[in-house]
C-alpha cells in the first residue's frame, strides 16, 4: 500500500548572485560595521533637524569658542554656533555630494563605456582619447579647475566632481563590456535578432554591475574627500550653511585657542570615508568569484 515514493532529489540550491554576495559580505565583520555606519549616517542626514540640539546657523555671541561641555558636546565655533549641530547638518552636504556626483559620473560614464566597448572602432578611439586626457589631469586639480570656472556653490562642486569622476566609469564599463562581448551568450542573443541596445542593457550591463558597484562605493569615498576639499577652499558649500570642509577652514585660524573646532569635522570626514572604503573593499571581496 505504501506507494513507492518517487522522491525527486531536492533541487540543487541555486543561489542568486546577489544572495551569494550578501552571504559572503555578512562574513566580513569590518564591511558590515562599515555598512552599519553608512546607514546611520544616512539616517542622521535625513533626520538632521530632529537630532541636532541647536540651529546649525544660529550665532550666539555669549557662547563664542566654548570648549566641549554638557550644553555643547562638541563645543562652539568662532561665532558661537553649536559644532555638534553643524556636524550633523554637514552630513547632508557630504553624503549628497558623494552620492550625487557619483550618480552624475555613472549616468554619463556607463552609457559611454557601453558604447565604446560594444561598438569599438572610431567611437572607442575617440572616447578613449577623451578618457586618457581627463585622467591625465590629477583628480582634485581638474575638479578645482571646473569648480572655479563654473563658480562656487555646492551644486557646481557636485557637477565638477561628477564630471571629473566620469572617465573612471567610462574606462571600467568599457573594459567589462569588452570582456563579455565575445561570450557565446552574447553571440546567441545577437543571432536571435535582439537589437544592439537590448543586448547592451539586458545582457552586458548585468555583467558590468558587480564591478560598477564596487567602483561606485569607492568613488563615493573619493568624492566626499573632494567635496570637503572644495568646501575647504571655499569652492563648495557656501557659508553660513554647514559643511565639514568649510568648518575645517574656519578652524585652522583658531588652532591655538579652540583646537576642538578642527577635531570634529575632520573626524567626521575620516569616519565617513573610512566606512565607504571598508564597505567597498568588502563588496569587492564578496563579489569576486575567485575568493572564497
Amino acid at each position: 500500500m505504501s506507494a513507492v515514493s518517487m522522491e525527486t532529489p531536492a533541487p540543487l540550491a541555486i543561489e542568486s548572485p546577489a544572495r551569494r554576495a550578501w552571504r559572503r559580505l555578512k562574513q566580513r565583520k569590518s564591511a558590515l560595521l562599515a555598512l552599519f555606519v553608512i546607514v546611520a549616517l544616512i539616517l542622521i542626514a535625513i533626520f538632521a533637524p530632529l537630532i541636532a540640539p541647536y540651529d546649525p546657523t544660529k550665532q550666539s555671541w555669549s557662547a563664542v569658542r566654548k570648549a566641549p561641555s554638557l550644553a555643547h558636546w562638541f563645543g562652539t565655533d568662532e561665532v558661537g554656533r553649536d559644532i555638534l549641530s553643524r556636524i550633523i547638518f554637514g552630513t547632508r552636504a557630504s553624503l549628497s555630494a558623494g552620492v550625487i556626483s557619483v550618480g552624475i559620473a555613472i549616468t554619463i560614464g556607463v552609457p559611454l563605456g557601453l558604447l565604446a566597448g560594444y561598438l569599438g572602432g572610431k567611437v572607442d578611439a575617440i572616447l578613449g582619447r577623451i578618457t586618457d586626457a581627463m585622467l591625465a589631469v590629477p583628480f582634485l586639480i581638474l575638479a578645482i579647475a571646473l569648480a572655479a570656472f563654473l563658480g562656487p556653490s555646492l551644486g557646481n562642486a557636485m557637477i565638477a566632481i561628477g564630471v571629473t569622476a566620469t572617465p573612471l566609469f567610462i574606462r571600467l564599463t568599457r573594459g567589462q563590456t569588452l570582456s563579455v562581448v565575445k561570450e557565446d551568450y552574447i553571440e546567441a542573443a545577437r543571432a536571435v535578432g535582439n537589437p544592439g541596445w537590448r543586448i547592451a542593457l539586458r545582457h552586458i550591463l548585468p555583467n558590468v554591475m558587480p564591478a560598477l558597484l564596487v567602483q561606485a562605493t569607492l568613488t563615493i569615498a573619493t568624492a566626499i574627500i573632494a567635496e570637503a576639499s572644495l568646501s575647504f577652499l571655499g569652492l563648495g558649500q557656501q557659508p553660513p550653511a554647514p559643511s565639514w570642509g568649510s568648518m575645517l577652514n574656519a578652524a585652522q585660524r583658531f588652532l591655538t585657542n579652540a583646537p576642538w573646532m578642527a577635531v570634529w569635522p575632520g573626524l567626521a570626514i575620516f569616519v565617513t570615508v573610512l566606512s565607504f572604503n571598508l564597505f567597498g573593499d568588502g563588496l569587492r571581496d564578496a563579489l569576486d568569484p575567485r575568493t572564497k
Binding site: 570637503a228 576639499s229 578642527a262 575632520g266 570615508v273 573610512l274 572604503n277
Partner: peptide, 11 residues
C-alpha cells in the same frame, strides 16, 4: 588612505 590630507596637516 581614508584620512583627508588637509585634516592630517592641521592636526
Amino acid at each position: 588612505i581614508s584620512t583627508p590630507n588637509f585634516w592630517l596637516g592641521i592636526m
